[in-house]
Design a protein around this nucleic acid. Structure first.
Lengths: 202, 202
DNA sequence: GACGAGGATGTCAGTCGCTGTCATGAGCGT
DNA sequence: ACGCTCATGACAGCGACTGACATCCTCGTC
């Protein structure tokens, strides 16, 4: 269960991932064949599909960990569960924001790598779809944990979706930022921008 | 350009769509073969791919029209372009909200159909990915038109993403609502809920 | 130190989504 | 009648993905 990596050539999975990333970046996703990836990794096409469900999944392997980070963070946050209507909701977004800020500091790889990865993704609709799907699962998980913490259905769903929306904007700005500002700063800016963006009262 | 439908059996495209929907609903998406769809429509597999780029695209054919509706609506709205910082952003969300409310009244098919369609989509990850991709293109288009109307980059992106996020929640609640409340009501609730969900000041 | 269990890999064959190419046949204008 | 256009059919082919079975290494056990 701890991944005592194996009796064969070790790191098969990471070798496959590396080979895939290189080929995707060099020739493009569509022009890369799974057989080529496997060959470069010294393995077989069949083995590739034993490590990754998908040709696309190679680029999104670590996403479960991000989801866990966020969930644990929100689960451990001090939500004012007992508060009356509007406050329960607003502290939910705050908790989500805090979770993303924490993840921004811990989880993400260096900008260089993220940029290269994003270039590959942006060049292919199928990969963008997968990226959105991952984010949507994150939103669903966040909404779920918020509900478990006592937040009502509607505000829980809204807080989760809005939080992910803000993060999407922050992440995009991060990888396209020529000034190389830290991700956490972009996350703060985006969540702060939410206040300015919503009609104050209505 | 007006679709003078043709010299062959007319409505090839809608026959294909109907056949696909029926088969997807009956046997499931994965268990349905494109050849089967084409056969039921009295056509060939090859012809199917001339009408739809994808096996999935059958379920999302009308989405460009929704996008146009929203864009036109926002483009025609009275945005306070000249306003100073916070107000420009907030009226942007209001414009997006109004656009979705208008679309909710005009565009969407009856609940029955939407529910059946959604059942098919919810049963298949690949279809969910496509649905998210469509919504993301909507968000991108909204952000673009907001920028053209003079809204700054960050608030434009946030308003678009948040608007789509709210709509996602509203739509989900609509198709799962046992009380059959109108979609526009759910849209209003969701956008109203945004106010309660965000920390008032911070 | 042989032996059996388990797990990761290889091999093979097959299905199906999707594409390029060329042929066919109906309608339409001249 | 002639040819043009265009939706469709007919084929051939690639590549993603899957299921079934064989192999082979490693480790624990006797």
């Amino acid at each position: 269960m701890l991944g005592l990596v194996g009796r064969w050539e070790p790191n098969a999975k990471s070798r496959l991932r590396q080979a895939a990333m290189d080929l995707y970046a060099e020739h493009g996703f569509d022009q890369t064949t799974v057989a080529e990836i496997a060959e470069r990794a010294g393995l077989t096409e069949r083995t590739f599909f034993r490590h990754f469900t998908d040709k696309r999944e190679v680029l999104f392997a670590g996403s479960e960990r991000l989801q866990e980070l966020l969930i644990d963070s929100v689960a451990a946050s001090s939500l004012s569960v007992g508060a009356t209507a509007p406050f329960a909701g607003s502290s939910a977004v705050a908790a989500v924001a805090a979770a993303f800020e924490a993840a921004a500091a811990d989880y993400f790889p260096p900008v260089e790598y993220s940029r290269q990865r994003q270039r590959v993704i942006d060049a292919n609709p199928a990969l963008q779809e997968r990226e959105l799907a991952k984010l949507d699962r994150v939103a669903a998980a966040l909404a779920s944990v918020l509900r478990e913490r006592g937040v009502d259905d509607l505000p829980a769903a809204l807080a989760a979706e809005v939080g992910v929306a803000a993060f999407k904007v922050a992440f995009t700005r991060w990888v396209t930022d020529p000034a190389d500002t830290a991700l956490i700063e972009h996350v703060r800016d985006a969540f702060a921008g939410l206040d300015a963006v919503l009609p104050t009262g209505s």
